[in-house]
């Protein structure tokens, strides 16, 4: 069951990564015309991703919280025994970054909701960037922890 939930957690994270990356890039580097791959990637209407990002974030977060105890009992103990402090610390940072993103989620939803308020352009850019960073960091740190015995 834990393996199933872990894979589901990873798949939801991938979907979340795609959505938040599209939105962040469209906020920071918008494109008017979708000509090639790169401009098409940037030309999306970022606001349309908001509800999906909120729902995916919550689902991924809850799944991560459910599979956290096995990591605490077995994964972290292994990291401590093997003195893998950087990997251990990366996971600690992951949980703090994502907890802070969770607290920011209502504000994120507010600034990205329709109709978009022109006065909140910077708030949109920054909230998307922070969640983008937290999700990407969490994904990479979680992936390394998950594969730590195979990698090191």
């Amino acid at each position: 069951m834990n393996v199933f939930l872990l894979i589901l957690h990873g798949l939801c994270a991938v979907a979340l990564l795609g959505a938040i990356t599209h939105q962040t890039v469209s906020a920071w580097w918008p494109a008017r015309k979708a000509v090639g791959f790169a401009t098409s990637f940037r030309a999306v209407q970022g606001a349309k991703f908001t509800n999906a990002i909120v729902i995916l974030f919550l689902i991924t977060f809850v799944l991560g919280a459910i599979i956290y105890p096995p990591y605490r009992l077995h994964g972290r103990t292994y990291l401590e025994t093997m003195r893998m402090w950087t990997v251990n610390g990366s996971f600690e940072l992951k949980e703090q970054f994502l907890a802070l993103s969770l607290g920011m989620l209502p504000f994120y939803w507010h600034v990205w909701r329709h109709p978009l308020d022109e006065a909140l352009v910077w708030a949109r850019k920054m909230t998307a960037a922070l969640i983008f960073f937290a999700v990407w960091f969490g994904f990479i740190a979680g992936h390394v922890v998950n594969n730590v015995r195979g990698i090191f």
Partner: peptide
């Protein structure tokens, strides 16, 4: 001020 909503989490990160 909307800056409260993102600057404080950024500083805490």
């Amino acid at each position: 001020p909307s800056i409260l909503g993102w600057a404080v989490p950024l500083v805490v990160m």
